[in-house]
Design a protein around this nucleic acid. Structure first.
Length: 482
RNA sequence: GCUCCCAUCGUCUAGAGGCCCAGGACACAGCCCUCUCAAGGCUGGUACGAGGGUUCGAAUCCCUCUGGGAGCGCCA
């Protein structure tokens, strides 16, 4: 007999409450970051609340350092949570390690209702059983070995000092139905679900249990998470029903794939948010890319934070897996850099500028290179162009210099290598003298002076290079062309 | 193996039976602009995984297959 969820228990929520529940076992990868962003946007769009809960029940793999890094990276991305470990809130604590008492209490209720039983099977035994089932073409489900143990048998095992985990008795012959916001109605047979562990032998609460319980206790109304949890949902619904707790709405978004098309969710060394940050990406650029992965925006244009919240729509979450594409991220990076207010751009690259560059010179340098800067590290090259130790000529630049010939640079020295010469009029003179114009006039100069064949407008750069350095570079070019 | 999810240009996607010999964005190519690059403008190529249905008509509905993914953990 089907058990309809979504009607009785799910009264229309006054406010939408979402949550992001990562485990601090490593750096946050972009797939999780996307999930976090989506939850944040969903809550903000609806004027609801966004909760951050740290799922650190795996003590061996969780660490304080990872948790701090998590906060930092999430804040860097621009997410703010209304409740969480570091900001508090009415449903705390928000670290699962600090919620053991809560789990004990609710586990006891389940136990009192006769819905659990201790399991004495060892991991080794279970592993063997799974392999046998798989080999026999059967689903690797818990066989129920300890399900019907008598009290005497349990006592005997305990007396022998055998550790036990606690399993949930999955009711047979039922259909769990729920409406997934992105996939529609889902039905699962409980007969396909084996009795699962809700408390480990070490006393720790298992994911299925603590995760679902906390959502209910914290008033979460929408569980927006990765599709890898889709088939976990019926288990959690069963648990919540047994506990007589409200069942949230579910929305399972397709997983994010790496650039190679492989899921990055569980891959070792998956691209982390931290790495993007270290590479110089701006958080708003990352947001603009992530929000379009598995979610369609109403525009292809840039979305600032307010517009992004306004534009977000649960109805436009996608069903198909999306690939993270750095080429597109770079597009948003360019947009982001272009939109940076002058003062922010200045601060963004400040660390790359030499102390000696100040005032007027600094301002005109920044103005000149700005269109050619995508990352802060791009500044380094143009800074070097200003120094007395210019970069090596690129292959293309050297070719251009050779093509121009020695005579051109002899003339150029005459026209340009004087103190206080004005670039444009000097170049005009040089053009008359050599019979060159346009690219054939400017390119050799660009190559000789900047060592590169492309870059910012030449005049402002020229004005920042000392006259004797200009002379030295033109001489360098002359020798190369001879 | 079983259960579940997914499938439109290289990539992100629009498309809820005729408006689609499929639109946009990114990327790519060409042209314009320009001292170069970037930006901007214009142009171009490239996609409905396959096969069956249903229908006057299918990218859109149904079935099968193929391909990809997830879950079936004392990980979360």
């Amino acid at each position: 007999m089907p058990l309809p969820y979504g009607s009785l228990r799910q009264m229309p929520a006054a406010t939408l409450v979402t949550r992001f529940a990562p485990s601090p076992t490593g750096l946050l990868h972009i797939g999780n970051a996307r999930t976090g962003l989506l939850n944040f946007l969903a809550a903000r769009k609806a004027g609801g609340r966004f909760i951050l809960r740290v799922e650190d029940t795996d003590e061996a793999r969780s660490s304080e350092a990872h948790m701090q890094a998590l906060f930092e990276d999430l804040r860097w991305l621009g997410l703010e949570w209304d409740e969480g470990p570091d900001v508090g809130g009415p449903h705390g604590p928000y670290r699962q390690q600090q919620r053991r008492g809560v789990y004990q209490e609710w586990l006891a209720r389940l136990d009192a209702a006769g819905l659990t039983y201790p399991c004495f099977c060892t991991p080794a035994e279970l592993s063997v059983a799974r392999k046998q089932q798989l080999a026999a073409g059967k689903p690797p489900r818990y066989a129920g070995t300890c399900r019907a143990l008598s009290e005497a048998q349990r006592a005997e095992r305990r007396a022998r000092g055998l550790p036990s985990a606690l399993r949930f008795r999955v009711p047979p012959g039922e259909t769990v139905i729920f409406n997934d916001l992105v996939h529609g109605e889902q039905r699962f047979q409980t007969d396909d679900i084996g009795d699962f562990i809700i408390r480990r032998a070490d006393g720790g609460s298992a994911f299925f249990f603590s995760n679902a319980l906390d959502d209910a206790l914290m008033g979460v109304t929408l569980v927006l998470r990765g599709e890898d949890h889709m088939t976990n949902s019926p288990r959690q619904i069963l648990l919540l029903r047994a506990l007589d707790l409200p069942v949230p709405q579910y929305a399972h978004v397709a997983l994010l794939l790496g650039m190679d098309g492989a899921p990055l969710s569980k891959r070792e060394g998956a691209l982390s948010l931290r790495e993007l940050r270290d590479r110089g990406y701006l958080p708003c650029a990352v947001r603009n890319h992530l929000v379009r992965l598995g979610h369609t925006c109403s525009t292809d244009d840039w979305l600032d934070e307010g517009a992004m919240i306004q534009d977000f729509d649960l109805a436009r979450l996608g069903r198909a897996a999306a690939r993270f594409d750095e080429a597109q991220l770079r597009h948003w990076q360019k947009e982001a850099v272009a939109r940076l207010p002058a003062a922010e751009f200045d601060a963004w690259i400040a660390a790359r500028l030499p102390q000696s560059l100040e005032g007027e010179r600094r301002a005109s340098f920044i103005a000149a290179i700005r269109p050619n800067v995508e990352f802060p590290q791009d500044v380094a090259f143009w800074v070097q162009v200003l120094t007395s130790a210019p970069p090596e000529l690129s292959t293309e630049a050297a070719a251009v210099v050779r093509e121009a010939g020695e005579a051109f640079f002899v003339a150029a020295k005459g026209a340009l290598a004087r103190e206080g010469v004005e670039f444009r009029s000097a170049v005009r003179e040089l053009g008359k003298e050599t019979g060159r114009k346009g690219p054939s006039l400017y390119m050799p100069l660009r190559a000789a002076l900047t060592s590169a064949t492309h870059g910012p407008e030449l005049a402002p750069l020229f004005a920042l290079i000392p006259a004797d350095e200009v002379r030295a570079r033109l001489e360098r070019a002359r020798r190369l062309a001879s």
